[in-house]
């Protein structure tokens, strides 16, 4: 107690003149990254927000006449709304699948010795060395009309004609999960290993068996890791383009693919409006996720 008060005393006694000096230094350190993002992210984002309120032009980027018609068509046209809903649904499914598959793996990793865990985490990150395109082509080689799976099924007589695995929602989901699972596992593992082992012992000493310990201590205290993993996976899934392009083709068009299509047809304002809608929808969903799961009862307030 005396310790706390003396610490507080030190803070109060810190000379006023030193504070601005420290702050200026901190800002100086921030400046390069800040400038980089301001020029290359904030300004362009502001620009496409502006562009989204204009009509298309055959000669330039946009026509210079203010209009809401891009948003009206995005938010009323069943084609775009359907794609938004599909994008959202696949992203939620991806997030849930990653949670269910990732949690047990993370739990196992967290139980290992730090040295053994390090080795397995390197293994887990290994696929990230390969480009997403190459890994997705792996799925095509497996699941295409003349892919390995169909070859086996045909030659074993399990089916008489190739099964259309590609260009289905399920295959897009499969691809997304296979690419995003490591992010979820690492987020949950990193939270699990911060849980003080004494808490599990305290639970055991006061009558909790292994399952109750998991339910009452481990699971709630890993809430922060599940939320950060879910936000990461969900965000990447919402904005995916290449995975759905290769595995979903013309049939499974996510919002990212529609944005690309709009730019290919030089409708920059529509692409901009779709992008704004995508960003807003993603941010809203993530905000809801953090709010819903981010209470102290879920270990977020530690």
């Amino acid at each position: 107690m005396s310790r706390t008060s003396s610490l507080a005393g030190t803070a109060e006694r810190a000379p006023a003149a030193r504070r601005p000096f420290r702050w200026k230094r901190a800002e100086a350190l921030l400046a390069p990254a800040f400038l980089y993002y301001f020029v290359l992210l904030v300004l362009p984002s502001a620009a496409f927000c502006v562009v989204s309120f204009y009509g298309r032009s055959d000669t330039g980027f946009f026509d210079g006449v203010f209009t809401l018609k891009n948003y009206v068509s995005v938010l009323t046209d069943g084609f775009y709304l359907g794609s938004l809903w599909l994008t959202f649904r696949i992203s939620v499914e991806t997030t849930l699948a990653c949670l269910l598959l990732g949690y047990p793996a993370a739990y196992y990793l967290a139980k290992l010795s730090p040295a053994a865990r390090k080795k397995l985490i390197i293994l887990l990150l290994f696929p990230l060395l390969l480009s997403t395109v190459i890994r997705v082509y792996g799925w095509i080689a497996l699941l295409g009309r003349r892919g390995i799976v169909n070859q086996v099924l045909l030659s074993s007589g399990a089916t008489d004609y190739p099964i259309a695995f590609l260009y289905t929602e399920g295959t897009v989901l499969l691809g997304l999960v296979s690419i995003l699972l490591p992010y979820m596992i690492i987020n949950i593992t990193n939270t699990l290993i911060t849980i003080d082992p004494a808490l599990r012992e305290a639970a055991a000493a006061h009558g909790a068996g292994p399952f109750k310990i998991f339910l009452k201590v481990t699971l709630p205290l890993s809430g922060a890791g599940m939320v950060s993993g879910a936000v990461m996976v969900f965000t990447i899934a919402m904005s995916t383009y290449i995975i759905s392009f290769l595995l979903g083709g013309p049939k499974v068009k996510l919002l990212g693919n529609l944005i690309f299509d709009s730019t290919s047809s030089f409708n920059w304002p529509l692409a901009a409006a779709l992008s704004v809608v995508l960003v807003v929808a993603t941010a809203a969903a993530c905000g809801a996720m953090v709010r819903l799961l981010g209470s102290p009862a879920n270990g977020m307030a530690r």
Binding site: A198, L199, A202, A203, A204, A205, H206, A208, G223, G299
Partner: peptide, 30 residues
């Protein structure tokens, strides 16, 4: 016999209170 079946109460050096539970829930845990 595992700890949870020994009918003990234990106080740890670093308290080991459940950070995600209120005082009342902590005390009522056992």
């Amino acid at each position: 016999v595992p700890p949870h079946k020994r009918d003990i109460g234990m106080v740890f050096q670093q308290y080991a209170l459940f950070p995600h539970q209120t005082v009342l829930d902590n005390v009522a845990f056992g």
